[in-house]
């Protein structure tokens, strides 16, 4: 088990990993010795599935954050490979440079033409460094916008896959107007005349996530999170150190259930038992099915109606008190 943990498991997954290891051992034993152990294996598999369900149905907000950041969690590149046909990646922002931390391109999803824009965290160390671990620079957001506007021109729906700790906080990013570029994306995405479906597949880190997150539909994978600030950042502000990150994750209300409750997202996309990292193929099927369902609904709307619907959706977001002639009403999305 220890080995398995080193391979990238989380503490609370230990009972699952233990069973998975046992199953693996039995399988290889039965293979080498030609002894039939299928009954035992079957039983263990059942127990393992129960464990997965029990553990992952009761994750704390912080455990969700850890799952969203799981080293083996499928990334945009995995979903592209597993969901798309004929995907052609397009590079560059036509202005400064190609930011690899955002992947953009065109292809087909279940027969529908789509443009895909997704954060890229990188698979190996070199790629992770080039992608700043999924933290985009202004040119990444500009690249996203250039490709989305290309999609808009030719009436092609847009799918975005959100997975970032946040937009990169650096000197170059500020010099090149990080805030201005993100703001521009928010404004322009609001008026694109094609369907936009945004899904948080892992980390939804604040403005960096929202920069490709204005859609007609907003979805979250079951064990992803979406927050105005990272739990560590919140803890640092409130308690002056990052030790209270678990408590911060709780009070920030950043899980998919929380966001569904606030009316911020439209749907939680279920993950396979034990999390997307256990069965990326099934996770991708689940996501593809959800996106296609929403896409078919949205494709019935005109460009004008899509813009209006997005506007009305955003208009409802917020929770406040409104006093009208002595009457109190609680307005907003909650």
């Amino acid at each position: 088990m220890a080995q398995q943990n080193i391979r990238g498991g989380l503490d609370f997954e230990a009972p699952i990993l233990e069973l998975e290891n046992k199953i693996e051992e039995l399988r290889s034993f039965s293979q080498t010795t030609q002894v039939d152990l299928s009954d035992q294996i079957e039983k263990l598999l059942e127990r393992c599935n129960e464990k997965k369900r029990a553990i992952f149905a009761n994750l704390s907000p912080w455990q969700k954050v850890l799952t969203a950041r799981h080293p083996r969690r499928p990334l945009s590149s995995d979903y592209l490979q597993l969901m798309m046909d004929d995907f052609v990646e397009l590079f560059g922002d036509r202005s400064f440079r190609d930011d690899p931390s955002i992947v953009t391109g065109f292809g087909r999803l279940g027969g529908h033409k789509v443009c895909v824009v997704g954060h890229r965290k990188g698979k190996d160390t070199a790629e992770k460094l080039a992608c700043y671990f999924g933290c985009s620079h202004p040119e990444g957001y500009r690249k996203a916008l250039v490709k989305m506007q290309l999609a808009d021109k030719f009436g092609i729906p847009i799918i975005t896959l959100i997975n970032t700790p946040g937009a990169y906080p650096g000197v170059g990013a500020e010099e090149r107007g990080q805030a201005f570029i993100i703001a521009k994306n928010l404004m322009e995405m609001a008026r694109l005349r094609v369907p936009i479906i945004c899904t948080v597949i892992g980390e939804g880190g604040s403005g960096g996530a929202l920069g490709i997150g204005v859609g007609n539909r907003n979805l979250m994978l079951e064990h992803s999170y979406y927050s105005v600030i990272s739990p560590e950042g919140c803890s640092a502000i409130l308690w002056k150190n990052t030790e209270f990150k678990e408590r911060a994750a709780e009070i920030l209300k950043l899980t998919a259930e929380d966001l569904l409750g606030f009316g911020i997202i439209d749907e939680i996309v279920p993950e396979p038992p034990g999390g997307a990292h256990r069965e990326p193929v099934r996770a991708a099927q689940s996501l593809k099915e959800a996106i296609l369902r929403h896409l078919r609904e949205l494709e019935k709307l005109s460009g004008e109606d899509l813009v209006k619907a997005r506007y009305q959706k955003l208009k409802r977001m917020g929770v406040y008190e409104e006093e009208t002639a002595g009457l109190l009403s609680l307005a907003g999305s909650a």
């Binding site: 929202l210 209300k253 606030f262 997005r310 506007y311 208009k315 977001m317 917020g318």
Partner: peptide, 14 residues
């Protein structure tokens, strides 16, 4: 106000 504050960014921009 957590995620609701973040969404005000998109709302005002729209």
């Amino acid at each position: 106000e957590g995620i609701l504050s973040l969404m005000q960014m998109a709302k005002t921009s729209a």
